[in-house]
Amino acid sequence: MLILNLKSTGPFIALCLVFLLGVFVNEAFLSSGNLANILARSSFIGIVAVGATFVITAGGIDLSVGSMAAFISGCMILLMNALHQSINSISIIICIAVFASIAMGLLAGLINGLLTTKARIEAFIVTLGTMGIYRSLVTFMADGGTLSLSFTINDVYSSVYYGDFLGIPYPVWVFFSLAGLAFVLMNKTIFGRHLFAVGSSEKVALYSAIDTEKIKIFAFMIQGFCVSIATIIYVPRLGSASGQTGVLWELEAIAAVIIGGTALKGGYGRVWGTVAGALILTLIGNILNLTDMVSNYLNGAVQGLIVIAAVVIQQRNGVQAKS
């Protein structure tokens, strides 16, 4: 049975409106090349934001994702360059790096999770700390410059970002399958129900015999996993990482989650809303590049306005749905 909830359609209405704006601004917007670019580009923030949906639903927040992505990218590049000395098969090197990346992501999530639950430090402070740590580590590893993947490896690896299946770029496939999995995990499993419970009231959840610490740690580990997946498709794009990689991703991811209708105070999450949120954010940037109607100096203002408008539309629909 399909019940149409107006509140849940809010982000998609906003997405359609921004899309129409794009069509109106420049005819090049609808070209298949541009649409493929937008989708592929949104997959980084999108994948990270899918993970953030879990953390925020559990009542936490993760500010470290951008730095974590930069740090894992840097480690992957150093690892692949080092393996290149001893292993001839480039596909094996890439496989090892991919597994190492996932392991690092899970571990980083575990660290954030343990510090928030076992050490009982506010998630905001924990992840603010790890954010600074990962950012400095990657700058240190790169000597303040840029880490570059060896050309021979990147020639093979770059197809992960630039290649496509049925005309749709691989990153988009990854993004949407991950979102599908996340949707099932959040809405169709016991873990998902517990996640909602922990986010709405930790005490009540605890008294209902839910292992709240475990749920929260899992949420941070899902976030870490998502960051590593985003990294795996980010590295082949430019084959480099630096102190600038992933700057402000955390804010964009959180914005995507909130635009998508997840409650910032926790207890309620929407994976597909987050996907729409990430697409809206990418579309705004794309549209601003396709027009010279707006002064360059005002790009930030336009972005801010559209983000606020998108949330207003969603709230309006929420009010209508209630009455």
């Binding site: 700058t139 790169a142 000597d143 303040g144 410059g145 840029t146 630096s242 102190g243 600038q244």
Partner: peptide, 8 residues
Amino acid sequence: AATHGWTG
């Protein structure tokens, strides 16, 4: 501080 290539 070394925040991008040139300052690096």
